[in-house]
Nucleic acid binder design. Structure first.
Lengths: 204, 204, 204, 204
DNA sequence: GATGAATGAGACTTCATTCAT
DNA sequence: AATGAATGAAGTCTCATTCAT
């Protein structure tokens, strides 16, 4: 775990400049889409010349990969930590859905890039990200299975419930913030409630 | 209504050639994203020369708009029709969620373009599409409100429930088909069940 | 033969514009070397915008290939024709060396590109050109062998003689014209005399 | 002479590192051509960072000049020494042609750069190299003139013979080694024989 | 002497779009 | 309607070179 964590850190780029470039790229990728975004524009947005990106990221795709890796690693960390908070499946589901939705709302710009630009990754890079995403999904599945087996939840199609809950979270990064919902806590609380209903969690 | 419907038809392009171009553009836009897609590639994919698109669509953005307009008009039609099927709110919700999810699964390629490339529309065109989308949302809100008021459903935050249900539908077009879920009926049935649980619909 | 000839013609580009581009490219490639030459400069030298080259030649390398193919095909044609002029090996050698040297002097710019930029061809294209060059060499070898077998020439290492004669011709394109030798006929006549001495041709 | 020799040595760069850089540059220049070669690639090929070349050679062209100067000075030395070996013009021609061809075969990589990248030198640097090359040519011309005047050789156009002999030598660096001729001694012996025939040297 | 990020210019190439045919 | 050469701008990326460390 520590090993993979530091491997990730190295692939991201460790210097201060590379972090600034990543942040700038997130903004531009999110605003215009990866395909329409220009490396020129990314560089210019932080006062660099067009070529200055390349000592840090060899290609535009490498930059997207670094952003994706950072994002998906971060969600997995957050979700994994949340899944340990609480004794009952219900408490764990509450904590985890909350964390997942909060992450997508708080980091909606980076999340948008990480979630919606995957098709532009190279096949090799895509494979790495896909595996992290599967790990994240498994966290939800495990909780739902555990809760159902323990009789805390109603019988439920675990696959569909997992898909629905993660879908809701991912989709937050597409529209958040909206005129109606611009408070991450509010939408997280609302989606936690819906998730509990989906699995038929008993209430106290 | 009839007026707007035929207006839509005219803006789409009526000729057989324009329909082929639209279909080709959907494939390319969906595969690479609007920004990365080229008009040359669209033309070439149906055996046309680069210039041949322009008698039909004056700009690449006009082509995206036509696709978006066709898509969102179509969902609204489908959802509106479904909302009239059945007497009770429960029946209407089942019918409508089913129709919405089915549409996004069956038309996942076109839906992907219509739902995820909106940022590339001109402000004027975006406004038109946004209004149609709001109409579609209102169909769901109205059913949920009606059901709650009638005591068919549990008390529920209508805004959040509407957002969640439409989110689930939209997000289908992002991932469908997957290895696990490649049958539109199956995912639609699963999501209908979850929607009913979200609103706390009484079951017979 | 007719087939291959017309195949060559098609690969060269048949339009008037592509011929102008090829001519412009020869000048720039010869003056600065393929690597240092710019497509921009080629285009500008005939009043075109930078992108205007690309409908005719998909890459800079394709342009080099067209030039190489045209050049080497042309030498082979010239040399083959010359090798049929005359009954004796001596007459044929005179005619062929003369034609080969004249070609490299008259077309020294194009010849320079064709002969000295081969390393920049793709492996596939290089293979095609290399085969044509071998055919050209074979013409000389056959004449020398024939002359030696008939007792017209002294015994001679055919391989070395062929190599030397073709080397002299190729090298003409490197330096021609010089202050001392700027008349193609003069250098051709001089080299014909030396070639006859190399093979020990009997004189009348 | 001593003066100019040490002046050359200073312009070349005297340190061990500069010699390694020159050697690396020869490889890259020869493989891709001066224009297409990058200083980065040269540095990387000997494990240096991009900037590390510049303390030794102020510009890429200075590096080419050092290589050219070293090469052409070396040929002149070799040829001058060989021209003193032997009493008769025939012996001296044999020795000198042999030395010239051997040098171009043994040092074919460096020779290629020195002989074929001259156009990329600055005018000032080109002038220096051109003078050395003229000196080298004069060595051949003097021998041929002497031999002809002494009746050792047939009457011959000295200019053409000199040009042909030096052409053959230079051109060796273009193609050597080939599948057929990869032994420097063999090609040198063959060209010596041809040179003797060119000038009509009497044989013992 | 060496490093490596940064510059400013420019590389090849592709883009959406126009227009004469 | 369709072609395809051409434009002008912009794309990603590499270049030789500099400079603070």
């Amino acid at each position: 775990m520590d090993v993979s964590r530091s491997a990730v850190r190295d692939e991201l780029g460790t210097s201060k400049a590379s972090a600034r470039i990543r942040a700038a790229a997130i903004e531009v990728f999110a605003a215009k889409g990866y395909g329409a975004a220009g490396t020129r524009e990314i560089a210019a947005s932080i006062g660099l010349s067009p070529g200055a990106v390349y000592p840090h990221y060899k290609t535009k795709e490498a930059l997207l990969y670094a952003i994706s890796l950072e994002g998906h690693s971060s969600v997995l960390d957050v979700v994994t930590a949340a899944a340990h908070a609480g004794a009952s499946a219900t408490e764990r589901l509450i904590s985890t859905v909350n964390a997942y939705v909060m992450w997508h709302a708080d980091n909606h710009t980076g999340a948008r890039v990480a979630q919606y630009e995957l098709r532009s990754l190279s096949p090799e890079h895509f494979t790495v990200i896909a595996e992290i995403r599967r790990s994240t999904s498994r966290v939800f599945s495990e909780i739902i299975e555990t809760g159902a087996a323990a009789g805390e939840f109603d019988p439920v199609d675990v696959g569909v419930a997992t898909l629905a809950i993660t879908s809701l979270g991912v989709d937050v990064s597409r529209w958040f913030p909206s005129k109606t919902y611009s408070d991450a806590d509010v939408i997280a609380a609302g989606y936690v409630e819906l998730a509990l209903r989906m699995v038929g969690a008993r209430r106290s």
